[in-house]
């Protein structure tokens, strides 16, 4: 293949990565933005979504599209409930203390990972895509499903954005984010907002995972990379900024796709990790963010 088409292919792959990453990172970013806590188990919510997608699709076993749609509904709901439960049982009791929360969510990470290993096993398993249409480009054919992942993710991002900016729920969330005490004074049920945001963050990760399993299989360790990449995106995009998150996801997704096609993926990750650490050290508000209030 010539360089041009090769680059196009890398770009398309990068866009798919970016699409899924944007959804996952948005979940992390919302939780951090509103609750001021870092959820280290976020990657495991992603993994859980993928594993559940496989379980649902396999259990139904009928037409792939039916299984997939069922997974798209069931997996986020189950993951959301798991998140809700852990918020109730653990995070709330810690009063969302940032350090204690990190330790607790590390614990959660290990628990979810181990349960997945015990019940799902160490194998990587695929889920059949809901359709197998291929788009024929002049140079190569490209999976129609991958293109639809990009579209679906874009739609979900727009929907989230509308909810955040145009609805009462969004207003309540932003008020809580801006000033917790003040929100409480205005009779906003802060605890319920927190629970809702935590569940929503987990559901976004689970949805992203369901979208990606037909492309890259479900595995109990698959949560680690999305966690790290989401951190990177959230940090570069500026904590709690939706627009920054999307831009950073595009940046990271595309460069990850392109760099790992031409260079060693380990080197790409190494450089990205160091770059992000430096951003955090020298520009803690992120590349696109402004200083927090």
């Amino acid at each position: 293949m010539a360089f041009g088409p090769h680059l196009l292919l890398a770009t398309l792959e990068g866009l798919v990565t970016a699409a899924v990453l944007a959804l996952t990172a948005l979940g992390l970013s919302l939780v951090f933005g509103v609750m001021r806590i870092v959820n280290v188990a976020h990657g495991e919510f992603f993994m859980l979504g993928a594993v559940l997608a496989w379980a649902v699709a396999t259990a139904l076993g009928t037409h792939p599209a039916l299984g997939f749609v069922a997974a798209l509904i069931v997996a986020p709901l189950v993951v959301g409930s798991v998140a809700l439960l852990s918020e109730r049982l653990v995070l709330r009791r810690l009063n969302y203390d940032p350090e204690a929360t990190i330790v607790a969510t590390i614990g959660l990470l290990y628990i979810i990972q181990q349960l997945a290993l015990s019940f799902y096993g160490p194998e990587a398993r695929p889920v059949t895509p809901p359709f197998s249409y291929r788009v024929l480009l002049p140079w190569f054919g490209y999976s129609g499903y991958k293109l639809s992942v990009i579209a679906a993710s874009a739609l979900l991002l727009i929907a989230t954005w509308l909810v955040l900016t145009r609805t009462k729920i969004g207003l309540v969330m932003r008020a809580t984010q801006y000033d917790r005490e003040m929100a409480q004074a205005f009779a906003i049920p802060v605890e319920r907002v927190y629970a809702g945001v935590f569940a929503l963050g987990a559901m976004l990760a689970a949805t992203a995972a369901v979208l990606i399993v037909p492309i890259s299989q479900a595995h109990y360790l698959m949560g680690q990379d999305p966690l790290l990449l989401s951190f990177i995106v959230v940090i570069i995009g500026g904590l709690g900024s939706l627009r920054g998150t999307v831009v950073a996801a595009l940046l990271i997704g595309l460069s990850d796709g392109i760099i790992s096609m031409f260079f060693s993926p380990t080197l790409a990750k190494l450089i990205a990790t160091l770059a992000v650490a430096m951003v955090l050290v020298f520009r803690p508000q992120g590349l696109f963010g402004t200083t927090a209030r």
């Binding site: 607790a104 614990g107 015990s118």
Partner: peptide
Amino acid sequence: SAWLLIVGVALILLVL
């Protein structure tokens, strides 16, 4: 063989 589970539960119980 689920030793990760024990580490996880221990962490949560300790902070709580």
